[in-house]
């Protein structure tokens, strides 16, 4: 069986951060961690090519990098595609997840990658692909490679994939039925007794949970601050140029409001399918208060209103997508020197 392996510039032994900008390149055969995979695959499969891409290059040219890499993968007719492991490297993890998902969806080739559970790539891609749970650094390479190789062989052979605990991958959130050893009532009584005694028990169904973030310190001088607007209320330029979905949005939009002093029914509308759109379509300032912020800007009450605003539809949007949008938007805002954010929701 044939494998194509994806790694970054560091594991590709090209260099560290200073080489993170290199575009994708392909090498015949094994590079870097490929050697460990060779052992773990025990001759059942062979890495025929290794693709190396700089993490920054991938992050900054995602669409282009993806297309380039897909073309490279295609040429080698692999039975399986392995990316990483990326451990706790955030950009590398996102790149592994992005490219692995693309190979699976667009080329129909099974994929596996590996990451540390807190790598942002995990939350973004765990529903789409098998991500082997690894340690947080390359010290965990041996173990990661063993599990990824075993998983790769199973996938390539079309074998049944066991539970996350059995195979070592991150839960994908898919509910699978099976017959338990005890009937439900007995399991309930056993769980109750454990709960009464304060012993550990494993719920069979996890209710959704929410985590918290510590508040950031306040803005020191608002009259000098650059304020950005973000909304989950779906306000978009008329015609919804990015075609943001009315619910379960898979993307967000970035819109230039330079020279815009008032959102009107002729220029802006809502793409949101989760509320009656009549009021927002008449006057989108009712959701995204550009008019008032422009006044405050002119009066010197705030430093400036950021040139771009960001919008998505917070209606049935998966937690994972919302997290991803938030993280990506925040990154852009920081790069643009924004000091504070007003986020409006309906």
């Amino acid at each position: 069986m044939r494998i194509v392996h994806y790694i970054n510039q560091f594991f590709g032994q090209i260099g560290g951060e200073e080489k993170a900008h290199i575009p994708p390149q392909i090498r015949e055969g094994i590079v870097g961690p490929g050697m460990a995979f060779k052992q773990a695959l025990r001759g059942e499969a062979e890495i025929v090519a290794t693709i190396i891409c700089g993490d920054s290059y991938f992050a900054e040219n995602e669409a282009k990098a993806k297309a380039e890499i897909l073309n490279m993968v295609k040429k080698y007719y692999p039975d399986i595609f392995i990316a990483g492991p990326a451990f706790n490297a955030g950009r590398y993890g996102i790149a592994c997840g992005t490219i692995a998902k693309a190979v699976k969806d667009e080329l129909g080739i099974p994929v596996v990658t590996g990451m540390y559970v807190e790598n942002p790539g995990v939350e973004m891609f765990r529903r789409d692909i098998y991500i082997i749970s690894t340690k947080n650094s390359a010290a965990g390479m041996r173990d990661a490679v063993l599990k990824m190789a075993a998983m790769a062989l199973k996938l390539a052979k079309g074998e049944r994939i066991g539970s996350p605990a059995d195979e070592g991958y991150v839960e994908r959130g898919i509910r699978v039925n099976y017959f338990a050893g005890e009937r439900g009532s007995k399991r309930a009584v056993d769980m109750l007794i454990k709960k009464i005694k304060g012993e550990a028990f494993l719920t069979e169904f996890k209710m959704p949970e929410f985590d918290r973030v510590i508040p950031n310190p306040p803005v020191q001088d608002i009259t000098k601050a650059k304020i950005a607007l973000v909304t989950s209320g779906g306000i978009v330029p008329k015609g919804n140029p990015d075609r943001i979905e009315a619910s379960s949005a898979s993307k967000y939009g970035e819109y230039d409001i330079e020279g815009v002093f008032d959102l009107t029914g002729e220029t802006f509308e809502t793409a949101h399918g989760g509320y009656d759109p009549v009021y927002a379509n008449m006057d989108a300032d009712r959701v995204l208060p550009v008019d008032v912020l422009r006044d405050l800007e002119m009066e010197g009450r705030i430093g400036s209103l950021h040139r771009y605003y960001y919008a998505t539809v917070g209606n049935g949007t998966s937690v994972a997508n919302a997290k991803r949008f938030g993280a990506e938007i925040a990154k852009k805002l920081l790069l643009d020197g924004v000091n504070a954010v007003i986020l409006t929701s309906t």
Binding site: N216, V230, F325, G326, I342, L343, T344, T346
Partner: peptide, 24 residues
Amino acid sequence: MVKEIERAGLPVVHMCTIVPISKT
């Protein structure tokens, strides 16, 4: 979204009709 923006280090205010949802 609001949480990720806060996590990135930007102070953010959430203007939202349903306070308990904003809290969750």
